[in-house]
Amino acid sequence: MKTMNVSLVGVGGQGILLTSDILAKTATLAGCDVKKSEIHGMAQRGGSVISQVRFGDKVYSPIIPDGTSDLLVSFDRLETLRWRHLLAPNGKVLMNDTYITPITVSSGQQPEVEDLSGKLAAEYPDLLKIDAMQLAESLGNTRTMNMVIAGALSSLTPFGTELWQEAMRQRIPAKLIDLNLKAFDLGRQAVL
C-alpha cells in the first residue's frame, strides 16, 4: 500500500490530537506501518495546532513534506487556509464549517480576513464541508464534535468502520463510548 499522508489542523482544545490518535490506532490495527507526529507544549490553548499521520507498508519520515498531503482535515475555516501549502496537487480537503475568531482579531490587533468563504471556494473547488458542531449539538454534547469529524474522515480512508470503532473503544473511556460511536456514525453518514 502506498503511503497515505493525512494532516489534521485546527485550534487547540478542539480535540484534534484525540482524532489523530484514533486514526493512527486504526491504521495500526489494519497492520500498517504508522507515524503520528504532533507539536504540543507552550500552552497551545487557543493556538494553531497540527498533527500529521502517515501510514502504509513502510513509513520513514514523521513529517509530511510540503505539498504531499493526500488529505487535509481542518477543524476550522481559517486554519483550512493557513495550511494550504501542505496539500498535494490532487489532495482532498475535509473542512469542519466552524470559525473560531482568533484573539488577535477579537482584541483588535489584526484585521479580520475579508471574504473567507470566497477565498476558500477559490482555493478548494472540491471542498468537502461538514457542520460537525451542529451534528454534535444534535447529540446534546458539543464535545463529540471531533468524533463527528472522525466519522466523516473514515469514509476517505481505506479502513472499515469496525476497525475505527475498535480503535475508539481502545482510546475512549467506556462511559463515553456509546455517545462517541453515535457521533462517529452521524459524521460518516453526513458525507456518504
Partner: peptide, 20 residues
C-alpha cells in the same frame, strides 16, 4: 524539483498562545 506549494496569504490573522 521542490513541490510547487501554494502558501496562503501572509495576511491571515495569527493564533498565538495566550494566557487562558
Amino acid at each position: 524539483e521542490l513541490p510547487a506549494v501554494k502558501r496562503a496569504d501572509a495576511g491571515l490573522p495569527t493564533r498565538p498562545p495566550v494566557l487562558c
